[in-house]
């Protein structure tokens, strides 16, 4: 990072992950990991369907949304758009997910489980949203072991003191 401007460098980020699709989860993880790589403190707060990224039984089966995703193109980003009805065909999400995972691996971006381990080992904190945990009838035991705590919105703001909050 070049500090050739007058602004104070970012010291801490709190990243909220609210969506449970592959494309909803990865940006937050990449930003959290990137922050730690730069020596910036980072915490991740998973809420609503974003929680799927840290649920032990769900985290290895996260998929790309092929329905309701007008940017979905085949066979690659610059290809023609995938008609919405085709996105609903059985196996389409599975197929798109497989394609994207291959590209992700090529860039040396780890699968979600490994990525969370990496971020946690790097000192990033990982939290689950209390309101969602209650709404989904979940308990601490349902989460992967990197989840440090289940916290309320109030606690989230307390922990985010001095941080930039990023909502994804």
């Amino acid at each position: 990072m070049t500090n050739d401007n007058e602004y104070e460098p970012i010291k801490k980020v709190s990243i909220i992950v609210s969506r449970g699709s592959l494309d909803g989860i990865y940006p937050g993880l990449i930003m959290a990991n990137g922050a730690r790589m730069e020596g910036i403190e980072a915490s991740l707060f998973f809420t609503f369907f974003g929680l799927h990224a840290v649920i032990e039984k769900k985290m290895d089966n996260i998929k790309v949304a092929t329905v309701g995703n007008p940017a979905m193109c085949v066979p690659s980003a610059m290809g023609p758009g995938l008609p919405t009805w085709m996105g609903a065909l059985p196996g389409m999400s599975w197929f798109a997910t497989g394609m994207m995972k291959k590209e992700i691996e090529k860039l040396d971006i780890p699968p979600i489980r490994e990525f969370l381990e990496m971020i946690h080992d790097a000192g990033g904190e990982i939290f689950a949203c209390k309101a969602t945990v209650e709404m989904f009838h979940l308990a601490k035991a349902d989460f992967c072991k990197q989840v440090d705590d289940i916290i309320s919105v109030g606690q989230f703001y307390e922990k985010s003191a001095g941080a930039q909050i990023i909502f994804t």
Partner: peptide, 25 residues
């Protein structure tokens, strides 16, 4: 970082302990 920790024999935790202010940079 992933490649580094896999191939250098230094795990993530150790790497961050060695270079606390951002291992990559």
């Amino acid at each position: 970082i992933r490649k580094l920790t896999k191939e250098s024999g230094i795990d993530t935790k150790t790497l961050y302990a060695l270079f606390p202010k951002g291992p990559a940079k």
